[in-house]
């Protein structure tokens, strides 16, 4: 155990009062003896986030993030970290007591450059449980294998993860300016892979993530994810992987079909894509409702929101590119 290297945990925050205490407790309970510090990088919280972090003990250090965003927070945190080995954390997540240890062990054992574990979504409301079921399913969330894979493997991107900060510096750090906010992790992983770095997924690295628990918030989140993809497309003239475009194609195809048939005054035929989608989503929703506490109608709603919001978000981002408008690097439409 003493051979294990020292790590810094970097935790971006912005008004995380409701989650931070439990998150920090789970990080402080790690069985890894060489956690040097937990760097809370705060983007100017107006709630009790900073006080909670300050109360959490001497291992926790609060650093200001004047540029507010998560991408900036990671750049600030990686710079401020005392150790080269950095664990990227998230305040909406709780960590198994062996999270850091298994992450470092997997990093060393696999020879990969970035290792992360499975994102286990936890619903805390009836709708949240449906969201958790949908976002644990390949049908619900696309190619991010950290949502559902059960075997260790090299992947395109992971949730959070542990890495040597020097590789981040190699590729210029997290992108704070060109991307839509929330696109930073996947885009960085994409650049790393283009530089020949390996990203590794290991299901034994366990954490629990609290996804959006309300339909409106889920819609906003997935719409933004769609915009994120467009911003990545604009930056790289390509996408790390193309399967996320399935919802975008579904939106475009449905809109085209409907417009065509409405123009020909065939309303029933025009409704076919929606009816077809509803049928397919209904079957998936019933299967997802096999999880205890997941109601099929809520799973159906969550599935529809994830797909349609994502697809519409992507086209909204494309429209933004065509109009020459910049993407929002901060939530709330502020650059």
């Amino acid at each position: 155990m003493s051979d294990l290297p020292a790590v810094s945990v970097v935790l971006p925050t912005l008004n995380e009062q409701g989650y931070l205490r439990d998150c920090l407790d789970s990080l402080l309970a790690q069985d890894y003896p060489s956690i040097r510090e937990i760097v809370v990088v705060d983007g100017g919280s107006t709630d009790q986030t900073r006080e909670i972090a300050a109360d959490a003990g001497s291992l926790v250090r609060v650093v200001d993030n004047p540029r507010v965003t998560a991408a900036a927070a990671m750049n600030v945190g990686v710079q401020a970290a005392a150790c080269d080995l950095v664990v990227r954390a998230d305040a909406h997540t709780l960590y198994a007591t062996d999270y850091v240890r298994r992450s470092v062990e997997a990093l060393q054992a696999s020879g990969a450059d970035w290792v992360g574990g499975r994102m286990n979504p936890v619903g805390t409301t009836s709708f949240g449980r449906a969201v958790a079921a949908v976002t644990s399913s390949p049908v619900g969330v696309g190619p991010g294998r950290f949502h559902y894979a059960t075997q260790a493997q090299d992947v395109e991107t992971v949730y959070l993860g542990v890495f040597d900060r020097r590789i981040v510096a190699e590729v210029g750090g997290y992108d704070e300016t060109e991307l839509q906010w929330a696109a930073e992790d996947q885009e960085l992983n994409y650049r790393l892979r283009r530089h020949g770095r390996r990203i590794r997924f290991d299901p034994q690295i366990r954490s629990w993530y609290f996804p959006r628990q309300q339909p409106r918030r889920l819609w906003d989140q997935y719409f933004n994810y769609g915009v994120c993809k467009a911003s990545t497309l604009k930056k790289h003239r390509t996408l790390p992987y193309w399967r996320p475009l399935v919802p975008a194609a579904m939106v475009a195809g449905s809109a085209g079909w409907m417009a065509l048939h409405l123009l020909r005054r065939r309303p029933l035929t025009a409704a076919l894509p929606v009816v077809g989608y509803a049928g397919a989503a209904g079957i998936v929703a019933v299967r997802l409702a096999g999880d205890p506490g997941v109601a099929p109608h809520r799973a159906f709603a969550a599935l529809g929101i994830c797909h349609w919001a994502y697809g519409l978000g992507f086209w909204s981002g494309v429209l933004r590119i065509l109009r020459g408008r910049p993407f929002d690097s901060r939530p709330g439409g502020h650059r």
Binding site: Q17, L20, R21, D22, D25, D47, Q48, I52, D55
Partner: peptide
């Protein structure tokens, strides 16, 4: 009850 958010689960 904001103070509750500062209290650990234990």
């Amino acid at each position: 009850w904001a103070e509750l958010d500062r209290v650990s689960v234990a």
